[in-house]
Simulated scan of single mutants.
Amino acid sequence: MARMHTRRRGQSCSVRPARNEAPSWSNTDKAAIEKLIVDLRKEGTSSSMIGLILRDRHGVPDVKMVTGKSIGDILVENKISSEIPEDLRDLMVKALGLRKHLEDNKKDLHNKRQLHLVEAKIRRLVKYYVGTKKLPAGFTYKPETTEILLSR
């Protein structure tokens, strides 16, 4: 698949092996895994980092294969999911950093273009999340209020 804002194609990556059940060496205790996920989230860890920690430190190659639910579903069940989806939050942080950089470096045209591209991705993602009702109906991206929104 082609990249969004360039004419280049994507980069081939490794593929996870196709399995129907968890490997014998992995941690398969559902209750312990769900408790770990909840504890890590309460510490302020993002859902993608939770997956990496479970894989690297606790021997859980795939949470969904073991528990039958994704990390996001477990967080929603325990009512500790974030208001803003993680991918949107990361793009907002990136746009905020670019804006702060451009305040000091007004003639940096390359990063000015990157800011436009990142904000286009944010608007596209907000439209998707409002349509899927993961964000409230009146939600709009405003660069002025982004810092306040992310501090919550």
Results as ranks from 00 to 15, higher is better:
Lys127Leu: 00
Thr145His: 09
Trp25Phe: 15
Glu43Ser: 08
Gln114Met: 00
Ala31Asn: 13
Ile33Cys: 12
Ile53Asp: 12
Glu83Pro: 13
His110Pro: 00
Lys94Gly: 05
Glu119Cys: 02
Thr67Cys: 10
Asp87Tyr: 09
Glu43Arg: 07
Val66Thr: 12
Met4Cys: 13
Leu150Phe: 08
His58Asn: 03
Phe139Met: 05
Ser12Ala: 14
Leu88Lys: 11
Ser12Gly: 11
Arg124Tyr: 04
Lys100Val: 07
Glu43Gln: 09
Ser24Val: 13
Pro143Val: 06
Glu21Lys: 12
Arg152Thr: 08
Met1Leu: 02
Lys107Asn: 02
Gly68Tyr: 11
Lys42Arg: 10
Ser82Asp: 05
Ile50Pro: 03
Arg57Met: 12
Asp29Lys: 06
Thr146Asn: 02
Lys30Met: 15
Arg55Ser: 07
Thr146Leu: 04
Lys79Val: 04
Asp29Asn: 12
Glu119Lys: 02
Tyr129Gly: 01
Val118Asp: 00
Met92Gly: 09
Asp39Asn: 04
Ala95Ser: 15
His58Leu: 02
Gln11Arg: 14
Trp25Tyr: 14
Leu117Trp: 01
Thr67Trp: 03
Asp108Ile: 02
Ser12Met: 14
Lys100Gln: 10
Thr67Gly: 09
Ser12Thr: 13
Lys142Asn: 09
Ile50Val: 05
Lys134Val: 01
Val63Asn: 00
Phe139Thr: 02
Ala22Trp: 10
Gly72Gln: 04
Gln11Ser: 10
Lys133His: 01
Arg41Lys: 04
Arg123Ile: 07
Val60Met: 04
Gln11Asn: 10
Arg9Met: 12
Lys107Gln: 06
Glu21Asp: 10
Arg3Tyr: 06
Asp73Lys: 15
Leu91Asp: 04
Ala32Glu: 15
Gln11Glu: 03
Glu21Gly: 07
Asp108Trp: 02
Pro23His: 08
Val15Cys: 13
Lys133Gln: 04
Arg9Leu: 11
Ile50Arg: 00
Ser151Glu: 08
Arg124Ser: 03
Tyr141Gln: 06
Met92Glu: 06
Arg152Met: 10
Pro17Leu: 06
Leu96Gln: 14
Asp90Val: 10
Ser24Tyr: 11
Ile53Ser: 12
Asp39Glu: 10
Arg41Met: 05
Arg57Leu: 14
Thr145Ser: 11
Ala31His: 14
Leu125Gln: 03
Arg152Leu: 11
Lys64Gly: 08
Lys79Cys: 07
Ala95His: 12
Arg123Met: 08
Glu144Thr: 15
Thr132Ile: 04
Thr145Val: 14
Arg19Met: 14
Leu54Tyr: 03
Asp39Cys: 02
Ala2Asn: 07
Arg124Met: 04
Phe139Asn: 05
His116Thr: 05
Ser24Met: 11
Glu86Asn: 13
Val93Ala: 03
Gln114Ser: 01
Arg152Gly: 03
Leu88Tyr: 10
Arg113Gly: 02
His110Cys: 02
Ser81His: 10
Gly51Lys: 01
Val76Ala: 15
Lys100Asn: 07
Leu96Phe: 13
Ala32Ser: 15
Lys107Met: 08
Arg7Gly: 12
Lys134Cys: 01
Leu150Thr: 08
Arg19Gly: 08
Lys121Gln: 00
Leu102Glu: 03
Ser82Gly: 08
Arg41Asp: 09
Leu54Ser: 02
Ser82Leu: 11
Thr145Glu: 15
Ala31Ser: 13
Lys79Phe: 04
Ala137Phe: 09
Leu150Ala: 09
Lys35Tyr: 11
Arg89Tyr: 01
Arg89Gln: 05
Thr45Tyr: 09
Val60Ile: 07
Arg8Ile: 04
